[in-house]
Write a protein that binds this DNA or RNA. Structure first.
Length: 639
RNA sequence: GCCGGUGUAGCUCAAUGGUAGAGCGUCCGCCUUGUAAGCGGUUGGUUGGAGGUUCGAUUCCUCUCACCGGCUCCA
């Protein structure tokens, strides 16, 4: 039979396996092979060869990593079964950067068990057990897993369609699995178990809680250590730690979870972000508004929030009246819209607010600044005609990208989220809104993915996710088209025809929740904020007491140029003061002693430790002021 | 909310049922200092909170709060 491989056609014998064939091919390293793609299907190396086209799957392919890690999850499952007899297996897929397996265990695992399990995995690797694929009828499989007491597998089988299923066996271990897999457990090289977690069976909180073990596996040792290094790096950048170390913000048990206290330095950074937003919105024709935090419940019934969002709202009663702490700003903006008749000539009308909202979040989900209960959005509502929708959405997206780039983010991923199950409004309205968003993205040439069912209850949305310095994605701007809100509140404008018309509302945020953005920003820069964002931009270090006067003159000169500067006048050594400034991640440290005092200069040390002496004060001031003005994203003194 | 873990001085962490400790920090001296820790002393704790077991609890048990890793949810 004929087999096509890498553009050439080969004659192959019947009855041979994929591996038999590949092993004979030029440039194929047998022990690097993971699986193969035969006529478009992913198959095991041990599969029988068929006529058609054959492609390699190696570690370099995404599928290769997946298969490799999926096998790792089977090895882990076998290890757990051996160590904890009676364990019931749930599911164990490969995920981004690793794998997990969910178990129903007779006892609770503790982190100390992970090394034991890892060790047993090593042994299984040593045994070099072949992974054998087996095709059986669904009935047989049900019988097998029932006899093994594997109830979850039985449940999975009962929900599956088709009459045949595949099993994979390695030694005594058997699992229901589509495959493919590595040819044998001996092929698994570098792996590590990372953490333990609870997880509901099928992600359903009404179903049993299982124990999940997360791990990762790599082909090469250096890739594993690079990944472990990445995890360390993420920990080093943890904004919660930076917030404490840099004295930016805190949380307090006595104040309740999920509400942030910004310290003086932290408030400076927040102020810079807010000033940026106010200025940019003003430039783009937004009108700033301010609305209260507390409304009567009535408004939220009208808006639909009480029906669709109540579990997230703080609702209480006073004087027999229902009140709501606002979880969103839209109803407030609508009230302002409705204070007078609007003409088509007023549109688009763009109301912007740094609106602080409170949303009840379940206690287990709170996470530093990234997930809080009280936060401020750079929220705007654009009231426009339907024919202006696309152009307005495009403007929003451009605004968002401009802002993110200014703050130093370069890479983005864009998602279009469609109608969720729990939602208001007719199919027709949803369709129109969804198409408007899609068209804007297409018009701007922005690549995007569709996220089905992930829209908000009142409309579809575009989400922009930003990639940080170490490649993690974070939720950023969103733009939502809403035909429902205008309907509910009976919003109108007078058209050219002197008749009432219904406007469309666009909800959009640029940096989104300021708290979340703040946290992401800290992690992105690992606390080493560029000069325009750094709460303290310069620390002046006088060498001895006699240099204090000059240090203060330097400070005043810098302050006159609008630079945020402090003098470290503690009676400490220069080394100590430099160290403190470095640990505080201050962009520039100026050491001043006799030479500087005489010459009217400063010694500049930047965060990277570069040290340039004898810089004229004037030159330093101008250069830093320029860095701030230009909002550069680094703080290197030279280069 | 659920599963697991953790809560000891401002921070990082010791103390396995028998009087709660270290380093750093704070404060006070001395040193007047040239680019990431000068020296000495001092201060600091209802061991997250409440209850229980015990002659005795940081340690064991129950409840509760907060935090951490996840699940679910989400800006």
């Amino acid at each position: 039979m004929k087999v096509r491989f890498k553009g050439k056609e080969y004659q192959a014998e019947g009855g041979s396996t994929v591996l038999d064939f590949l092993a004979r091919m030029e440039g194929v390293e047998e022990d690097r092979l993971i699986a193969a793609r035969l006529n478009g299907r992913e198959v095991d190396l041990s599969s029988p060869l068929e006529e058609g086209s054959l492609e390699l799957i190696t570690w370099e392919d995404e599928e290769g990593k997946e298969i490799y890690r999926h096998t790792a999850s089977h090895v882990m499952a076998q290890a757990v079964m051996e160590l904890f007899p009676g364990t019931k297996l749930a599911v164990g897929p490969a995920i981004k950067d690793g794998f997990y397996y969910d178990f129903d265990l007779p006892e609770a695992l503790s982190p100390e068990d992970l090394p034991r399990i890892e060790q047993r995995m090593e042994e299984i690797v040593q045994r070099d057990l072949p992974l054998r694929r087996e095709v059986v009828s669904r009935g047989e499989a049900v019988e097998l897993f029932r006899s093994l007491g594997q109830d979850y597998k039985v449940e999975l089988l009962e929900e599956m369609e088709g009459e045949e299923v595949t099993l994979y066996r390695q030694g005594d271990f058997v699992d229901l699995c589509r495959g493919p897999h590595l040819p044998s457990t001996g092929r698994l090289r570098h792996f590590k178990l990372l953490s333990l977690a609870g997880a509901y069976w099928k992600g359903d909180e009404t179903r049993p809680m299982l124990q999940r073990i997360y791990g990762t596996a790599f082909d090469k040792e250096e890739d594993l250590s690079a990944y472990l290094h990445f995890l360390k790096e993420a920990e080093r950048r943890d904004h919660r730690r930076l917030g404490r170390e840099l004295d930016l913000f805190s949380f307090h048990e006595e104040a309740g979870p999920g509400v942030v206290f910004y310290h003086p330095r932290g408030a400076v950074l927040r102020g810079i972000i807010e000033d940026f937003l106010k200025e940019e919105h003003r430039k783009r024709g937004y009108q700033m508004v301010v609305t209260p935090h507390l409304f009567r419940g009535r408004l939220w019934h009208e808006s639909g929030h009480m029906d669709y969002y109540r579990e997230n709202m703080y609702v209480f009663e006073k004087d027999g009246m229902e009140y709501v702490v606002k979880p969103m700003n839209c109803p407030g903006h609508v009230l302002i819209y409705k204070t007078r008749p609007r003409s088509y000539r007023d549109l688009p009308l763009k109301f912007f607010e740094l609106g602080t909202v409170y949303r009840y979040e379940r206690s287990g989900v709170l996470h530093g600044l990234l997930r809080v209960r009280g936060f401020t959005q750079d929220d705007a509502h654009i009231f426009c005609r339907e024919d202006q929708l696309r152009e307005q959405v495009e403007e929003c997206l451009e605004f968002a990208f401009y802002s993110l780039r200014t703050f130093g983010f370069r890479d983005f991923e864009v998602f279009l989220s469609t109608r969720p199950e729990k939602s208001v409004g007719s199919d027709e309205l949803w369709e129109r809104a969804t198409f408007a968003l899609r068209d804007s993205l297409v018009e701007l040439g922005i690549p995007f993915q569709v996220d089905p069912g992930e829209g908000v209850f009142y409309g579809p949305k575009i989400d922009v996710k930003l990639k940080d310095a170490i490649g993690r994605l974070w939720q950023g701007p969103t733009v939502q088209a809403d035909f429902n809100l205008p309907e509910r509140f009976n919003l109108q404008y007078t058209g050219r025809d002197n008749r009432p018309h219904r406007p469309v509302v666009i909800h959009r945020v640029v940096l989104a929740g300021i708290e979340r953005f703040y946290g992401v920003l800290l992690e992105h820069y690992a606390g080493e904020l560029p000069p325009w964002l750094a709460p303290v931009q310069v620390v002046v270090v006088p060498i001895a007491d006699r240099h204090l006067d000059y240090a203060n003159r330097v400070r005043e000169a810098l302050e006159r140029a609008g630079i945020r500067v402090e003098v470290d006048d503690d009676r400490e050594t220069v080394s100590m003061k430099v160290r403190r400034a470095q640990l505080q991640k201050i962009p520039f440290t100026l050491v001043v002693g006799d030479r500087e005092t005489e010459g009217g200069t400063v010694s500049v040390r930047d965060r990277a430790g570069r040290d340039v002496r004898g810089v004229p004060l004037q030159e330093f001031t101008v250069k830093v002021a320029k860095m701030v003005e230009e909002r550069v994203t680094t703080a290197d003194w030279e280069g």
